[in-house]
């Protein structure tokens, strides 16, 4: 009798323990993704070709190449965009940083971005995106452009390299008459 009672107690006890165990929330599983270590290159030069012609030459003091994400972080960027005209002068670009995306073919330039157009106008902004596929420069940050008798402050810009047409939104222009 005593033995069967003890057996019952043990069974009930085990049942409670199993029930308690099953009620416990599962332990959180923390993904431990290792940060991708980039390949670091210094004093680099990159070239973008159109056929056999160099369309864009890009220089940077340092490049961090992330292979998996297909991105490259650049610092102290200097770019030369060739003119569409055979004898035309190039457009030059400077920026503190740049981020190249291999997937989207976009290059985002940030920090003291400066563009010097061949005719002498200079454009300054903080963020500028260069779309390699569409061949355009785009920015939605405040822009300042000066030179050739005009000084412009605008809310954003769009520059089609193919047509050489620059559009500034909400411009405020000081025109020398």
């Amino acid at each position: 009798m005593k033995a069967s009672l003890w057996g019952l107690v043990v069974v009930v006890g085990l049942g409670l323990m199993v029930g308690w165990y099953l009620r416990q929330p599962p332990e959180e599983q923390v993904d431990q993704v290792e940060e991708e270590k980039p390949a670091i290159l210094t004093s680099i030069e990159m070239k973008d070709y159109l056929g056999s012609v160099v369309k864009v030459r890009l220089f940077a003091k340092q490049a961090k190449v992330f292979e998996k994400s297909e991105t490259t972080d650049l610092s102290e960027v200097y770019g030369i965009i060739a003119s569409k005209k055979p004898e035309g002068l190039p457009t030059k670009i400077w920026a503190n940083q740049g981020k190249l995306s291999g997937k989207t073919k976009l290059m985002t330039l940030t920090g003291d971005v400066r563009v010097e157009f061949p005719e002498g106008r200079v454009l300054e902004t903080e963020v500028l995106v260069y779309d390699q596929q569409k061949e355009l420069l785009q920015g939605d940050q405040p822009v300042r452009m000066f030179g050739r008798g005009d000084s412009v402050d605008a809310a954003g810009l769009l520059y089609f390299l193919k047509t050489e047409v620059l559009t500034l939104t909400l411009p405020s222009i000081e025109v020398t008459l």
């Binding site: 559009t167 411009p171 000081e174």
Partner: peptide
């Protein structure tokens, strides 16, 4: 050397012709 301040919704600068359209 007088100067004018001009505002508009958009400014288009055609660099091939040098024409500025506000």
């Amino acid at each position: 050397q007088s100067k004018a301040l001009v505002h508009g919704q958009a400014m288009k600068l055609d660099k091939s012709t040098g024409k500025m359209l506000i």
